[in-house]
Amino acid sequence: MAYVNKQIKFKFLELVPLLLLFYISLNGHSVIDLKYFSINVHYILVYYWVLRQPRMLGYGFIFMSGVISDVVFGLPLGVNALSLLIIAAVATYARVVTVRITLLSDWISFIPALLVANFIYFLSLYFSNYSVDYLFLFKNSIFTFIFYPILWSVFTLILNLTKS
């Protein structure tokens, strides 16, 4: 019985990133917008799990979650999906070329991921004739980068729980 309970707990914890991914997309909480700053939780979630435990977050699910975010936010279909896949691509590349993963190496490689993803986001919206607040987008990128270690710690805790 204890073994079965442990298996259920293990399976549930393995599903946490996926559930979180779809929850924030459907609930429209992928960008947490507070009074003075905003953080893109979606980017951090995808980047961390693709880098650290890719089998828990399939690329197909990331694509679907991006499409859901597009619909919920009223953006052209494919904008968020594309930027999330770019984040996943940079994370995958970082995973392939990195031998030892530390918070610092994760954090530094998150910079090109953010830059490329936001550039693609900007281009997609520009060609779709959508106006967005670019200053907001810039501030959002800065704070997403700053808050990365906090979410990194939370996700590492979940990851360690799945291993224990």
């Binding site: 890719p54 494919g78 904008v79």
Partner: peptide, 19 residues
């Protein structure tokens, strides 16, 4: 890679096609 049903490249192309 393991447990991935689609390649990243294919999904990126699909996203662009969707756009």
């Amino acid at each position: 890679s393991t447990k991935q049903k689609f390649s990243l490249f294919a999904l990126i192309i699909l996203s662009i096609a969707l756009l």
